[in-house]
């Protein structure tokens, strides 16, 4: 995409939402510090989500670089 931020005039979640009571270890977090956020900034996220974001960080592996090049050059 052209920039780091691209506008969508659509609600990202048209169909699904996080369940009120999430089951299982793989349950999605209700709000997470990832991509495609609804105008949220890290300061607006819950502490655990901020911690997750910081711990994940950004590291680009070769296969990610290859994938990204294939998509966007």
């Amino acid at each position: 995409m052209k920039n780091d931020k691209t506008r969508f005039t659509a609600d990202r979640r048209l169909f699904l939402k996080s369940a009120a009571v999430a089951g299982g270890a793989a349950a999605l977090t209700a709000v997470s510090a990832t991509t495609l956020v609804d105008e949220a900034t890290p300061a607006q996220l819950p502490p655990d989500a901020q911690e997750k974001s910081a711990s994940q960080g950004y590291h680009e592996t070769q296969h990610i670089r290859d994938y990204y090049r294939a998509l966007r050059s």
Binding site: M1, D4, T35, H59
Partner: peptide, 12 residues
């Protein structure tokens, strides 16, 4: 909705 890249997941 704003789509932002690289704030928590890898860019790819």
């Amino acid at each position: 909705v704003t789509l932002s890249i690289g704030s928590g997941v890898e860019a790819g």
